[in-house]
Computed example of a mutant assay.
Amino acid sequence: MATNFLVHEKIWFDKFKYDDAERKFYEQMNGPVAGSSRQENGASVILRDIARARENIQKSLAGSSGPGASSGPGGDPSELVIRIASLEVENQSLRGVVQDLQQAVSKLEARLSALEKSLPAHRATAPQTQHVSPMRQVEPPARKVATATEDDEDDDIDLFGSDEEGDKEAARLREERLRQYAERKAKKPAPVAKSSILLDVKPWDDETDMAQLEACVRSVQLDGLTWGGSKLMPVGYGIHKLQIQCVVEDDKVGTDLLEEEITKFEEHVQSVDIAAFNKI
């Protein structure tokens, strides 16, 4: 089936035979001299390229201008002279900068040595001058009172007298003034320590009257207890808790006492928690 199909195609299967016959025909017409002359022409071209390359290499080595030698080290000498001149100018400027830096360093060294020489003399003369600080002139009130008491005692006591009555009177006055000073110091009120407490009061269920619960909480009255603001906070399932602020004196009211007094209202209060506790 494949051969029958190829029979109807117009394909030149024997083209290579015709090509060989055409090549042999032209070889017979031109003769073998043509092939040898073509080879000789190719060799002469290669030799000519080699000779030209050798000539270029010799020119570049000799430093003369030629093809391929302009970009090498044997280029225009004027450019090299210009570069050398610019380098010399830059070298001169750098030398000037270095000299300026050396002079500045020498000046700094001289100033440092002069300061080091003058420092011991300043330290030796410093203790001779005493400066009174303004802060030292202010004395605490206790020292002032004690000093005033001592001054009054010195005024009342006659140091040059030998009278025993004067000594007894001075001792009595001193004891009286010390007693008065101690009484005044004892009467001075001490600072009261206070704390700010934020309480969470939880009801039993959503049917608890929160207004009545807050009224019960505020009905707790203790010495050193002051109630502040309050608000209702949602807990869940329609239940709200009462969040109330109070200020207590630490020496009079404690958190345990406060919780115990609030939880006495068992019909409304389920539990009491401390949400925040801060010292004032």
Rank of each mutant, 00 (worst) to 15 (best):
R54K: 15
P32Q: 05
G228L: 02
K188Y: 06
L94W: 00
A43E: 10
E169G: 08
V235R: 06
T129R: 15
I157M: 05
A69Q: 13
Y181S: 14
E27D: 11
Q58G: 14
N4P: 03
L115V: 09
C246N: 02
A114K: 15
A276C: 03
A171C: 04
A142D: 06
R111W: 05
V33E: 12
G238F: 00
L198C: 08
L178Y: 04
T129K: 15
G254P: 00
F5A: 11
D158I: 03
A121D: 12
M29H: 08
A215R: 05
Q103N: 15
A69L: 06
R143L: 07
Q128G: 13
L6Q: 09
F16N: 11
D152A: 12
R177I: 05
E260V: 06
T129N: 13
E207Q: 12
E55K: 15
D200C: 03
E139D: 08
I280G: 04
R184Y: 13
K10V: 05
D151W: 02
H131M: 13
R95Y: 00
S106P: 02
Q243K: 09
L198N: 06
A211H: 07
A62T: 11
R38S: 12
T125Q: 14
F277D: 13
N278L: 12
H8N: 09
G254E: 02
M233S: 08
W227R: 04
I262Y: 04
E165C: 04
A43I: 13
S118P: 01
Q128Y: 08
A124P: 00
E259C: 06
A190E: 06
V45T: 15
R48F: 05
L258I: 00
V220W: 06
G74F: 03
T208Y: 01
E267R: 12
P134W: 10
F160M: 09
A142M: 06
P120W: 06
A146R: 13
A121C: 04
S230P: 04
V105K: 15
E183W: 07
S118V: 07
R48P: 00
A146G: 08
A43S: 15
L94Y: 02
V272M: 01
A275N: 09
R95S: 05
D273I: 01
G74Y: 00
S65E: 05
F16P: 04
K24I: 09
A110V: 08
A53C: 07
A53W: 00
D206F: 13
A124E: 14
D152M: 06
D250W: 00
R143S: 14
V248I: 14
V272P: 09
P120A: 11
Y237C: 04
G31D: 03
R38C: 07
A126C: 05
A211L: 07
K279I: 04
Y181M: 13
T147S: 11
I57K: 15
E55H: 10
E90A: 13
V217C: 03
T125V: 14
F5R: 11
A190S: 12
R184K: 14
S64H: 07
E165G: 07
K10G: 04
K117E: 13
E109R: 15
S37F: 04
E90R: 13
V248G: 00
P120L: 11
P67G: 12
